[in-house]
Structure formats: C-alpha cells, structure tokens
C-alpha cells in the first residue's frame, strides 16, 4: 500500500542550476506584443483578444487574452492561466467575468504556436531530453515566464497583482514560473503539479506523459544518466525553494498521472506561505469539483479584483 505523504522524493540540484536559468533568461528578444480583438469569442461581459508575443529564440507564441467590459476606474489584477500537457488553452472568459485581465498562454508546440517548433504529442517530454541546452521544455518554460512579463506590461493591468493558475503541467509550471519571476508573481494556485520529481515519477506510474520517459529509455537504455542529468535542471523540486509568492497546492491521493508522492515533495520544498488540500479517491482531477471555489477565493484574496473586493 502506498503512503504518498511519507515517501521521500529527491532530485539532485546541479551546481550550476541558477546559472543555467540566468543564462536562459538573459538577453531574451523584445516581446513585440500584438493584440487582435476576436469578436466571435467575446461576450456581453468579456472582450477576448488573440495575443501574440516573441519568446525564447525568436519563436512567436499565442495566447488568449480577455478583460471584463465593465472596467473599474483602477487597473485590473492579472491571471496567467497555464495549460496542461495535452489540452489547448481556451479563452479565459470566466476569470474576466470575475474581474481579471486573464491570459491563457499556448506555449510553443501547442496548436497556435507550433509553426516552427512542433515536437508533437507524444514527444514534448522527451524532445532532446539528453541535453539541457536544447531540451524542448527550455523554450516552453520561458514562454510561460514571458507570459507573466507580457501581462504585467499591458495597459490597464496592475503589474503588482499578477497570479498564476493551472493544474498538472499548469500546476508544475506555476511553481516554476513563480520561482523564476519572484518579484512579479503575487500568488500561485497549483493543482496536481507535473514536472516535479520527474525521473522518480516515471518509476511510480505507467500513465502518460511520464510513460514517455519509460518508452524513451526502452529504446535508449544507455541514456539513463543523460536523461536524469537533463531533467534535474527542469524539476519543480529544484525551483520550489525560490518561490516567494503564497502558494496553494491541491492533490488527488490516487493520481496516476502525477504521483501524489511528488506533489507532497514539492509542497514540502516550498518555503513561502502555503496551503495544501488533498482529496482521497481522486485521481488527476485532484478534487477539482470541491477545490475550485477555494482556488477562486485564494486568488481573489491575494489579487483583489474589483468585483469581489
């Protein structure tokens, strides 16, 4: 019988971990933001835009951006909605109905951002996984970091009130992005965080996406060490201590996709103000039905949108 809360998950932290990410984030190209209204996806309450910006290595990244039509006098708080592994981001209208300027990012490889980078699905998790410098997630991580920068620079958005929200890949990258932009991120809600305890996760489950690693190693057994070396640079456990924003984590106690052992491990590694909600008999939904109102309340408390203040 598994006891996820007591399990020990360790990931070696490379000596040059910070230097690697400083170098990755140095000299990024100007974001060159382009906003196009999308009347067809807009409603009486919310205006939706197609937003595009330039990210790592010059790749153009797409997002949906939405704002409430009835704007308060002051600037809006912002939310970056980070997508899961196989999902396509949808216009984040519900967040704007709640009073937020909301940006749902489609990092490289997602449908609207895959013109020049398209490792495919399956494929993203193991794309160049033997080399941290060219690993597919390198640009993907930066795309989310840049989404925070872009949102904070949009007119009418309060750059001191930006939160991150997502589950699975969106949960893991919420934690990672908060660590990489500690001065910009005000709070994080992270469900069933993926990309935490990456190598160990592939031993704990047979579900995708982690199973992609097992499949890769089945035909490239000689790459075991190189894979472990690369993913250590991308592992949420190695970012967690750098998170300064209040963090809300929720887990399904029978999550076959992102093993709860790794969710507990990343939660323990977070030193910022934090809270944890766990749901027995829940899998990768991580109790969404019950936890989502708590996520909304958490974000509202820290970001104070006008409508619910």
């Amino acid at each position: 019988m598994r006891d996820p809360e007591s399990a020990t998950i360790t990931v070696p932290r490379p000596d040059d971990f910070d230097a690697f990410w400083s170098a990755t984030l140095a000299d990024l190209p100007p974001t060159d933001v382009e906003l196009t209204p999308v009347p067809r996806l807009s409603t009486e309450l919310v205006e939706v835009f197609d937003l595009r910006y330039t990210s790592y290595q010059g790749v153009r990244v797409a997002a949906w951006y939405s704002v409430p039509r009835n704007r308060p006098a002051g600037p809006l708080p912002g939310i970056v909605n980070i997508p899961g592994y196989i999902s396509e981001p949808l216009p984040p209208r519900a967040w704007s109905e709640r009073g937020y300027a909301a940006l749902a990012v489609a990092p490289r490889g997602k449908l609207r951002s895959n013109a020049v980078f398209n490792p495919g699905y399956p494929g993203l998790l193991t794309h160049n996984i033997v080399d941290r410098f060219t690993y597919g997630y390198r640009g993907f991580y930066v795309d989310v970091v840049r989404a925070v920068d872009v949102l904070g620079q949009l007119p009418g958005v309060d750059p001191t009130r930006i939160g991150l929200q997502g589950s699975s890949q969106g949960g893991g990258l919420g934690i990672i992005t908060a660590a990489l932009r500690p001065d910009a991120v005000r709070c994080v809600a992270a469900g069933a965080p993926y990309l935490c305890g990456i190598r160990e996760s592939a031993r704990l489950t047979r579900s995708y996406p982690y199973e992609e690693i097992n499949e890769y190693l089945r035909v490239h057994p000689e790459d075991e060490e190189r894979v472990a070396e690369t993913v250590a640079y991308y592992d949420g456990l190695n970012f967690a201590a750098d998170v300064r924003a209040p963090t809300f984590v929720y887990l399904g106690m029978e999550d076959d996709v992102c093993p709860p052992e790794t969710g507990f491990a990343v939660y323990r590694a977070i030193t910022a103000e934090k809270e944890l909600h766990t749901y027995p008999r829940c899998g990768h939904s991580a109790g969404l039905h019950w936890v989502f109102p708590k996520v909304e309340a958490f974000l509202d408390t820290h970001l104070t949108p006008e409508g619910v203040r």
Partner: peptide, 9 residues
C-alpha cells in the same frame, strides 16, 4: 459520477 475520478474510473 461522484467527482472522485479515481473511484469513478
């Protein structure tokens, strides 16, 4: 469905 997705599955 109970919303306890592991149990439902």
């Amino acid at each position: 469905l109970t919303h306890e997705d592991a149990a439902d599955d």
